[in-house]
Amino acid sequence: MSTKLRAVTRYLIKEQFQLLGWTYLCLFAAFVILPFLMALFTGNLKGFSFISTVSDLGLGVVFGFFIFMTMSLTYEHFKLLIQNGISRKTFWQARILTLLVMSVAGEFIAALYNYGVTAPVHHHSASQFLDASTYSLYAHYFGSNLAINLGASFIFSCLFFIGLGTTGMALGSIFSLLTKFVRRIVIITIPILGFFFLVFVTSTAAGNSHYNFEGLANFVKFLLGYQANGAAGNFNPWPPMLTMVIGSIIMAGIAYAFNRKLRIKQ
């Protein structure tokens, strides 16, 4: 690793940790302190449970949003780095390394919180918590060894965060190249198109469409690791993990291609 790459990676990681700290602090203020104050001022303190509130913060979900948003911030970093003689390539490499480190760290914090705070507060064992988590579809695929299942869940979540991060990077890099006008049009158009797409999907799912989506449905089932004879919990996690790895590589490639075209706006 070159000196510059190391310097940029350290800088980005440090900045990400600071931002993550602030994010969790804001989360705590908004979902713990604010409800506490509301309860205090409305005289409803009996109905407020500090422990219960603290245990339901959903750090994993918040981290997912965090990694997507921060990885999409491209131009702000680019202009600072190019001002300091750092190439686009080094910037991209440093962001990938930062994403890997942050995904592992973010999932580690979320896992500590889930199994150290949320599960005990709700009187759940680790195994019970895993069965209720986003990994529940695959929670028993590797047998009954809890450590292996927890490890697989950890890797699964890390890959998911890496996928979110690389998607954020790709979108951020593309957006950085657009003019303000085009960016506004895209921001307005995408939700509208998304709404129509949702209506279309709902209509199709309700059987009101003459299109046959059986092939697509089977493909999605394959990607999710659906087992025809297996119940939820015994789905195969390898196809989704492989999909996330391939998807991340594609997104990182898109981010790289657009990253190389970054330029200072006059």
């Binding site: 510059k4 190019i82 003689g85 750092i86 190439s87 686009r88 190389r260």
Partner: peptide
Amino acid sequence: VDNDHTLGRLYL
């Protein structure tokens, strides 16, 4: 172009 070594030798 995209070269840390050379870009680090100039400042604008």
